[in-house]
């Protein structure tokens, strides 16, 4: 419950963004992010909410850890927690706004 997961914003509809996480599109809520978010931006998702817009120059460094984790065996606990973070986002079209 401590590790957020980064993804790239594809579309913004009010308080909901459609976000690409390594090829999977999910909906992330924007209620508590403190900067304007636009398509192309990277956000840090935590339990279904964007908690931070990641500065453009930092993205590559931020993504590396997750790429390694997502390739890890399913039984790996840290990898499972990252997958759990993705489960916390809504599949597209499920949003209520």
């Amino acid at each position: 419950m401590c590790l957020g997961v980064p993804g790239q914003v594809v579309e913004v509809n009010g308080l909901v963004a459609s976000v690409d996480f390594w090829g999977v599109r999910r909906e992330v809520r924007l209620d508590i992010v403190d900067q304007p978010v636009e398509p192309g931006d990277y956000i840090l998702n935590h339990v279904g909410f964007a908690i931070r817009k990641i500065p453009a120059e930092e993205i590559e460094e931020t993504l590396a850890l997750y790429e390694e984790l997502l390739q890890a065996a399913e039984s790996d606990m840290m990898s499972a927690d990252v997958h759990g973070e993705l489960e916390a986002t809504a599949p597209e079209g499920d949003g209520h706004d």
């Binding site: 401590c2 508590i32 339990v47 279904g48 909410f49 908690i51 499920d94």
Partner: peptide, 30 residues
């Protein structure tokens, strides 16, 4: 996996749904 999913559950059923909310600041803001 998220507070929103607990709300969805409540929408989809008649029962009283109680979200047992745990975690530090990162989940409390959600």
């Amino acid at each position: 996996y998220s507070a929103s999913q607990a709300v969805e559950l409540a929408r989809s059923c008649e029962a009283e749904v109680v979200f047992f909310a745990t975690g530090f600041e990162t989940t409390a803001v959600a």
